[in-house]
Amino acid sequence: MDNEITLPIWQVDAFSSKIFGGNPAAVVALSGTWLPDSLMQAIAAENNLSETAFVRLGEYPVPLRWFTPRCEVPLCGHATLATIAVMHQVLGHVETGSTTEIASASGILRVRANRKNYVLDFPSRPTVPTGTPKAQLECVLDCEISEVWESVDRYVCVFGSEAEVRDVNVNVSQASTLPLPGLIATAIGSDCDFVSRYFAPAKGVLEDPVTGTSHCTLAPFWGRRFGKTQLRARQLSDRGGEIHCSLVDDRVRLTGECRIYLQGSITVPVLG
């Protein structure tokens, strides 16, 4: 129909070596200009994944935007990984061993496509003291917290053990009213350097399975404490995911694998 458009779409399990693991992201490929923001938001809401990436093919650096079911976000790790995996494994736009530059709301990002994995080169997001009372966040998480920090758009709540992070039970309604929309729970890992979980109900993401942007904060945070620049991390969601983190000056490099789960097309109305 004249008032509809058909677009290619893929769903990719990012930060995972197997299907049904890691964090699923949708990737929608565009030719030419962006779709109207309202239409991209509607597609993301319909997909109902943590993020849907929209990529404009045939341009360089590669223009990329990300939407949760509720809003656009300025930076997303797993959906960037998913986008490059589609361009590498399906479309043939990215060669093995090459580094692709991405134009985003957070500046130029870089992704290296290796034979088995991908390396994100993202800006570091350091922590600062928070003005939100620890007691308020303890009410949201229904447990005691050792330390509280913040970074850009999320709180960093430090716990005494991996088991405590696993047992966190977020009060969604209270979390949605916090000054910052995201909340990280983290601790030293039992068989890795650190573990985490991430919640962002204000963005329409109750719990994110594996969160690249959180590791742009957690890698430098734990790296300083351990005196290390190479760290192994695990996100303790039901799907789970593992990330190798490398600190280089004010950048964080995150390494993960991808598996393409679905490919097809969507037909949507052209919204103004």
Rank of each mutant, 00 (worst) to 15 (best):
E4T: 07
P8Y: 13
V12R: 09
A14G: 12
S16N: 07
K18F: 12
K18Q: 13
I19H: 15
F20G: 08
P24W: 07
A25S: 13
A29M: 09
W34Q: 02
P36A: 11
A44I: 05
N47H: 15
N48C: 09
N48W: 05
L49G: 08
T52S: 15
L57N: 08
G58P: 06
G58V: 03
V62E: 08
P69D: 04
R70M: 13
R70H: 10
P74Q: 08
G77T: 05
H78E: 03
A82R: 11
T83H: 03
V86Q: 01
M87I: 02
V90T: 04
T100K: 00
A103P: 11
L109P: 00
Y118P: 11
S124E: 14
P133T: 11
C139Y: 00
L141A: 15
D142W: 04
S151T: 14
V158Y: 12
V158T: 09
F159Q: 02
D167N: 15
N169A: 10
V172Y: 08
A175G: 05
A175S: 10
L178K: 14
S190E: 14
D193V: 01
D193P: 01
S196T: 14
G204E: 00
L206A: 09
D208H: 00
P209K: 02
T213K: 02
L218S: 08
P220Q: 12
R224N: 13
F226S: 01
R232M: 09
L236A: 09
R239T: 14
R239H: 14
H244V: 12
L247C: 04
V252Q: 08
T255H: 01
E257K: 06
C258T: 10
R259V: 14
Y261G: 06
Y261S: 13
I266G: 02
I266R: 03
T267C: 09
V270I: 08
V270N: 02
L271A: 12
